[in-house]
Simulated scan of single mutants.
Amino acid sequence: MAETLGDGAIAARLTELSGWERSGDEIVRTVTAPSFPEAIAVVDEVAQPAEKADHHPDIDIRWRTLRFALTTHSAGGLTARDFDLAEQIDQITVRRNAT
């Protein structure tokens, strides 16, 4: 099982990410895609690394707006796995022009 990160480590990792914020035991980010089909394409692309890592974000879709939330439920908090997937989500959203 992955180890949870302390507050200092979480704060440090957040400085490495674009637009992510801590909300309790989650990190969250909201982006807006150019269109609804593009928002769905972002979700579809995020599914690939999430499935590969067996670590799945909570995703809320509201038209072109996507909200991603990450936490490691099995560890009871934030772990390196959350930040690793957040980095991959960032790469996907940049490539898909979701800001």
Rank of each mutant, 00 (worst) to 15 (best):
I61F: 04
A41F: 07
A39H: 06
R62P: 06
A39I: 07
T71V: 11
D54C: 10
R67S: 14
D60E: 11
A47N: 04
D44L: 13
V46Q: 02
T72E: 06
E26I: 06
I59D: 01
S23P: 07
D58V: 15
P34R: 02
P49V: 08
I40L: 11
H56R: 09
A53D: 13
A33N: 03
Q48H: 12
A53M: 14
S23M: 10
A50W: 08
A41E: 11
A47M: 05
T65G: 05
D54V: 13
A41P: 06
A33H: 03
D54I: 13
H56S: 09
S35P: 05
D25S: 13
E26N: 10
F36Y: 10
A53K: 14
P49I: 08
A33D: 03
V28P: 07
Q48I: 15
S35L: 11
R29M: 05
T71I: 10
K52M: 13
R67E: 14
I59E: 00
D44C: 09
L70D: 08
F68K: 00
P37C: 04
Q48K: 15
V31I: 04
S23W: 08
D25T: 15
I59T: 01
E21K: 14
R29P: 02
D54N: 14
D54A: 14
R29Y: 05
A47P: 00
I40P: 02
R62T: 15
V31F: 01
V42T: 05
I40H: 04
Q48C: 10
V43A: 03
V31E: 00
R67K: 15
H55D: 04
T65P: 05
A53F: 09
A39W: 06
V46R: 02
I59M: 00
I27W: 07
K52F: 11
G19K: 04
A47K: 05
A33Y: 02
D25Y: 07
R62C: 11
H56N: 11
R22F: 02
V28G: 07
E21M: 09
E38D: 15
I40F: 12
T65H: 09
V42S: 03
S23E: 15
S23R: 15
T30R: 05
I61V: 13
R67W: 10
A53S: 14
R62Y: 14
T72F: 07
D60H: 12
A47C: 04
D58N: 13
P37F: 03
D58R: 13
G19E: 04
V42Q: 02
G24Y: 00
D58E: 14
E21A: 12
T32P: 10
A39T: 07
D25W: 07
T71M: 10
L66C: 02
